[in-house]
């Protein structure tokens, strides 16, 4: 274990096998998406009835604008909002956020750690840093895989600039931040790992459902502003070739607010099994 940032390294060391599997899974999945996108003619999708896909399908293409799933940016965006992609992100976030505080309290190891000259802020900072490192790696793996696929597919490359791929990857980090903040807040106040994992999954699932319903049903349209998937729009980033900074700012802002709340909650709580 490293002498500097031991809690950071410990978090990564304990989850190293799971993280390796997630990275491989992410690369394989995004490679498959690129291959599938290259094999399809997106314009022909949903064209048999003479109409395009329903507007709610934008939820699956990672767009809150006009990017249809029946387009290359829409298809690649679908790979970055697919339930498999979400599940891998949430597995990493839920697992490491749970391990940040709640799992140590549940298992009793928090006693050994926190009787040492370790401030609660430091515990949170090192564990958050480990989580950030993991989501950076995961999103980098997805981004590089998609970028490689786009670079090797002239048809896709004409519709999707590489800058859009990297912008979409950056938006993925924003989404992860948005999940990390609340997950860390639950961990900072919780006593069980299952509370954190459950809350993380619930936030994402409810968020996705709210966004889909808001796109499908006009009276519910205002609810879309409550969903992280309204702001996490890799399809739009892929089409526009740049980061959507206001959306990214909202995602990152929610994450930072969650971390601030985690800090407050951790300072006030008891740390014993």
């Amino acid at each position: 274990m490293k002498d500097r940032w031991p809690l950071f390294w410990l978090a990564l060391h304990r989850r190293r096998r799971m993280l390796g599997a997630l990275l491989l899974g992410m690369v394989a999945f995004e490679a498959l998406i690129v291959v599938v996108a290259g094999a399809l003619a997106p314009g022909d999708l949903f064209s048999s009835g003479g109409k395009g896909p329903p507007s709610a399908y934008q939820a699956f293409s990672g767009s809150s604008g006009n990017v249809s799933i029946a387009s290359y940016p829409g298809l690649l965006g679908a790979g970055l909002t697919h339930p498999f992609w979400i599940a891998m992100q949430l597995t990493a976030i839920g697992s490491l956020a749970a391990a940040a505080v709640a799992a140590d309290v549940e298992s009793g190891t928090v006693e050994l750690v926190m009787v040492r000259p370790v401030s609660r802020s430091r515990l949170l900072a090192e564990r958050t840093a480990a989580l950030l490192a993991v989501v950076l790696a995961l999103n980098a793996a997805a981004t590089v895989t998609v970028a490689a696929g786009v670079a090797l597919s002239p048809g896709i490359h004409r519709a999707v600039p590489l800058s859009g791929v990297f912008a979409a990857g950056f938006m993925g980090i924003g989404f992860a931040l948005c999940m990390i903040g609340p997950a860390m807040a639950v961990s900072a106040a919780g006593r069980r790992r299952s509370q954190v994992i459950g809350a993380t999954i619930a936030i994402a699932a409810v968020g996705f459902a709210v966004n889909f319903i808001a796109l499908a049903w006009t009276p519910a349209a205002p609810l879309r502003f409550l969903s992280p998937f309204h702001y996490y729009t890799p399809g739009d980033a892929l089409a526009e070739g740049g980061v959507l900074w206001p959306q990214f700012g909202i995602l990152a802002g929610v994450g930072l607010l969650g971390l601030l709340l985690a800090h407050v909650l951790l300072r006030r709580r008891d740390l014993a099994p």
Binding site: L10, S107, E111, L112, V115, P117, V118
Partner: peptide, 14 residues
């Protein structure tokens, strides 16, 4: 904390 050594009653390790 640097001046204390502590052995918990139920020692839990990683």
């Amino acid at each position: 904390a640097p001046r204390i050594g502590y052995l918990p009653g139920e020692l839990r390790l990683y």
